[in-house]
Write a protein that binds this DNA or RNA. Sequence first.
DNA 1: ACTATTCCATACGCAACCGTATGGAGACCA
DNA 2: TGGTCTCCATACGGTTGCGTATGGAATAGT
Lengths: 179, 179
Amino acid sequence: MTQQPRPRLSAEDWLMAGFRALADQGPSALRAEALARNLGTTKGSFYWHFKDLPDYLAKLIALWETRAFTDVLASLDPDLPPRGRLEQLCLLATGYRDPSYGGIALEPALRAWALSAPDVADALRRMDARRLDALADLCTQAGITDPVAPRALYALAIGVEALGDDKGTEAMRLVLRGL
Amino acid sequence: MTQQPRPRLSAEDWLMAGFRALADQGPSALRAEALARNLGTTKGSFYWHFKDLPDYLAKLIALWETRAFTDVLASLDPDLPPRGRLEQLCLLATGYRDPSYGGIALEPALRAWALSAPDVADALRRMDARRLDALADLCTQAGITDPVAPRALYALAIGVEALGDDKGTEAMRLVLRGL
DNA sequence: ACTATTCCATACGCAACCGTATGGAGACCA
DNA sequence: TGGTCTCCATACGGTTGCGTATGGAATAGT
């Protein structure tokens, strides 16, 4: 779409393009030459910034893993009551669309990618564990004692995102009401 | 794993191998030569049974779409009370492992595939709509009136399956209790 | 047994992609 | 201005997969 004069690219430019390609076309779009076309350059740049494709993919996963958790937690409104923060976290947990990723929905594509990439599956498992911990904390603060409640809420959030359900907020509130 | 003497293959053999490859290695494993290797044959057979790869993939989707819904409904125990059938359906809806698919978990892989294949996305949307209708029926029979309850239950089932949560049954029951 | 049909093996040309090698364009410095 | 360093373009060989063509093996029909 945009073929600007000739900006030099950084490694992060390539990574951001990777996130976008992943969200738009799936893991098979994470290839040096295809990404280069999207960026209006050639793979010469790619192989200067990254050793090879596995190196690039590892850095892509690492960048997601270091950002997607803390950025979500930081965006929580500390003035809300625990139950309000809980609801907010549930909706953010998988619907994260921070501008640092170009405002796109990464999670479903990443979870899909994880099914065929063990490294991604590992990162996703770590992320799930951290989020479940945070959810468990908030649940206890909100007076929800059932030990499976965090898992239920998290699974619901994942399902809502996977379904692309526009009634996701209401479904989340309905379930929260029953806890 | 199994390299039997030399049985002739049918189109369905290829389709079943496709389901298995999809569940095991993702959509990128749905290729003529890779499937042929798994079946201990060559792509000569593939291109005899199918015109080309799109033809094969379309038949794969069609077969799933015609089976995955009715087979699940037929497996419901009619002697259970509505709420029991509801719970059973929720757990079956996305965890379908009928031997006709080789006892594998297709849904997560298929939903992942749908993110990068519009045809699959269409089939999945149709399937979701049919399942949501059935869920809504069961909900009314069970005296659950909230209109978003079916979507909440379905999203929860999808999330549980995506998470690979071994506590899925308990999470489902916890939410059902609150409805 | 002869023929026809069904099914598969093999070989080919084509295209896409990987990773490397090498040179060139620009910036930056002295 | 000359040199150096950063970043990218291009060309190359190798691999993998697609779809076709063609012949052969196995099976069924008569």
